[in-house]
């Protein structure tokens, strides 16, 4: 039963239904601002039919009192703000139930696990469009709250011993959020809703000293908001949007391989190895954003239009991170 208390000194702003400040409360040092007492009951049951087959079932309620606030859709979000639960922010709550089983196949040295889950989440946090989060004393007025539900099925087949090892895992899942004041109060897929997630990791010991491994991952592209049209305002081409996260980035996938050469015998105390790897072997361009706001300059660069009298066409661009990238790593362990 966690107990969460906020103490002063602090200033709390209270907002009306239009997110305008209606009151300002000042709290002195060590003065209690808000206290939450919640029950977090959890139960987990496991039944083993025999040494190779077991079934498990779990249920739990979880609360989260610290919230990472970031409206960024970029993968580089180092300017987030942490906000505690308090007068304007209720603790996030998740009710989750899961059931699954584990089966060992002794002869093949394989383990198969599967699990189904359902979560219902309350007091979820989202943001007013174009929320101003940095150095904003009224940041809590930029937040929007609602619920989310997620469900899924996870499968994993794993071999941990032997010359040839690895795993295959697949998850089918969905997440839907419903936030008051966003998307006309209709459910939408948040950025992290990726229905299909598949990964394959294979490892093969070519000799006592040399290991080769390959890792392929694939998942559905994240949900993003793309324009349904455009309009002009004061010389700029402005995107017009329909439903929130109406579209998806292209599916993400890449293959990484590595060759590890252990430079001494495994029984030695001092261990060192050299590994050669190739990240994103087939140079997949996995986009992290799709943009509708650039010109292509004469030297082939993509730039933001500055001359609003310009007649050049705007082009659609995608940004992606690392393409194919080789690496060499030397490791030692004393």
């Amino acid at each position: 039963m966690p107990i969460w208390t906020n103490n002063g000194p602090t200033t709390i702003y209270l907002f009306d239904t239009n997110y305008q400040v209606v009151d300002t409360l000042n709290f002195q040092d060590k003065e209690t601002v808000k206290t939450f007492v919640n029950l977090d009951p959890r139960i987990s049951l496991k039944y083993m039919f025999d040494s190779t087959f077991s079934v498990k079932l779990s249920y739990g309620i979880y609360h989260q009192y610290l919230n990472l606030i970031s409206n960024s859709i970029s993968p580089f979000s180092s300017f987030e703000v942490w906000l505690p639960a308090g007068t304007n922010i209720k603790p996030q709550r998740s009710d989750q139930v899961a059931a699954g089983f584990v089966k060992f196949f002794n002869k093949a040295n394989l383990e198969f696990t599967t699990e189904a889950y359902y979560k219902y989440m309350q007091n979820q946090i989202d943001y007013e469009p174009h929320a101003s989060l940095l150095l904003n004393p009224l940041i809590e007025g930029e937040l929007r709250f609602g619920t989310a539900r997620s469900w899924g099925l996870e499968f994993m087949l794993r071999r941990t011993q032997g010359r040839f090892s690895g795993w295959i895992s697949y998850t089918w899942s969905r997440v839907l959020s419903k936030i008051e004041g966003l998307n006309n109060n209709k459910e939408f897929s948040p950025f992290y809703d990726r229905p299909h997630d598949l990964s394959v990791f294979l490892s093969y010991n070519l000799s006592r000293k040399v290991n080769f491994s390959a890792n392929w991952i694939y998942y559905t592209g994240s949900a993003i908001t793309t324009p349904i049209g455009f309009y002009t305002y004061n010389g700029s081409t402005v995107p017009m949007y329909g439903e929130k996260n109406n579209d998806r980035l292209p599916d993400y996938h890449r293959l990484d391989i590595a060759l590890i050469w252990n430079l001494n015998k495994p029984e030695r105390k001092f261990q060192h190895s050299l590994s050669f790897g190739i990240y994103n072997l087939y140079n997949r361009h996995n986009p992290v954003s799709i943009n509708f706001n650039k010109l292509e300059s004469k030297d082939g660069k993509f730039v933001i239009p500055a001359n609003l009298y310009g007649m050049e066409d705007i082009v659609t661009t995608q940004e992606y991170l690392l393409g194919v990238m080789p690496s060499i790593t030397y490791k030692f362990k004393l």
Binding site: N71, S72, I73, S74, F76, S77, F79, Y127, P129, H130, A131, F191, I224, T225, S236, T237, V238, P239, Y241, K244, S289, N291, F292, N293, K294, I304, T317, E319
Partner: peptide
Amino acid sequence: ETEWQGSLFEDARG
């Protein structure tokens, strides 16, 4: 929605 779209710390669009 214009100059900052696609920038390093881009906001969710709307």
